[in-house]
Simulated scan of single mutants.
Amino acid sequence: MTATPLIDPFQRTIDYLRVSVTDRCDFRCVYCMSENMTFLPKKELLTLEELDRMCSTFVGLGVKKLRITGGEPLVRRDIMTFFQRMSRHLDSGALRELTLTTNGSQLEKYADDLYAAGVRRINVSLDTLDDQKFADITRWGRLPQVMRGIDAAQKAGLRIKINAVALKGFNEDELFTMVDWCAERDMDLTFIEVMPMGDIGNENRLGQYWALSDLRDSLRERFTLTDLAERTGGPARYVRLEETGQKLGFITPLTHNFCESCNRVRLTCTGELYMCLGQEDMADLRKPLRDYPEDDRALENAIRAAIALKPKGHDFDYSRQKLDGQMPRHMSHTGG
Rank of each mutant, 00 (worst) to 15 (best):
E221S: 14
P253E: 02
K43I: 13
E72P: 02
A116S: 14
L175D: 03
K42R: 14
C55A: 14
M195R: 01
D324W: 11
N204S: 10
W181H: 05
A94N: 15
G198F: 03
E242L: 11
L158Q: 01
E242C: 05
P41S: 14
E294H: 13
E72K: 04
D151I: 13
T334I: 08
G70C: 06
E172P: 03
A111Y: 04
E294N: 09
Q11L: 10
R222A: 10
F316E: 02
R329S: 09
G157S: 13
R142Q: 12
F27T: 08
N123Y: 01
M331K: 00
L45N: 02
F170S: 00
R148D: 15
R67G: 00
D295E: 11
Q326N: 10
P328M: 07
W210Q: 12
F83Y: 05
M197S: 03
S319I: 09
D281F: 06
L215H: 07
D214G: 15
P41G: 15
V146K: 01
Y16T: 03
F58T: 05
V124Y: 00
G201M: 07
G62A: 11
M33H: 00
F134G: 06
F27G: 04
T99Q: 06
K322N: 08
R142I: 13
P73N: 11
T2R: 15
E243L: 10
R96E: 15
A302N: 05
C29V: 07
L90Q: 08
S332M: 06
V146H: 00
I251F: 15
F134E: 08
I307Q: 02
I137E: 02
D186C: 11
L95T: 00
M327I: 06
D113H: 10
D227C: 14
D78P: 03
L40P: 00
H89W: 15
M327A: 04
R320H: 10
L175A: 08
R264G: 04
L98R: 05
L126Y: 04
A283I: 07
M197F: 00
G70P: 02
Q321S: 10
I79V: 12
R148Q: 13
N103A: 11
A166Y: 00
R240H: 09
V19Y: 07
D291V: 10
F82T: 02
K65V: 08
S87C: 07
D188C: 14
P311D: 13
L158I: 05
P41C: 10
F176W: 08
V165I: 13
G278W: 09
R266Y: 01
H333L: 09
C276V: 12
A305N: 01
H333Y: 07
T57E: 08
L289K: 02
K42S: 14
R85I: 14
F258W: 13
F58I: 11
K155M: 13
D217A: 12
E172A: 11
A94F: 11
R77C: 11
T232L: 07
E221W: 06
T99R: 01
R286M: 07
F134P: 04
L228C: 12
Y115W: 12
I122S: 01
R67W: 06
D186P: 11
I14C: 10
A111R: 02
L289E: 01
L129P: 08
G207A: 12
K168W: 03
D324H: 08
L175Y: 12
V75E: 09
A94Y: 15
V75F: 08
P41W: 04
D315A: 15
R24Q: 12
R185T: 13
E243V: 06
D180S: 14
E203V: 14
A305I: 10
A153C: 06
T38F: 10
T102V: 04
L323S: 05
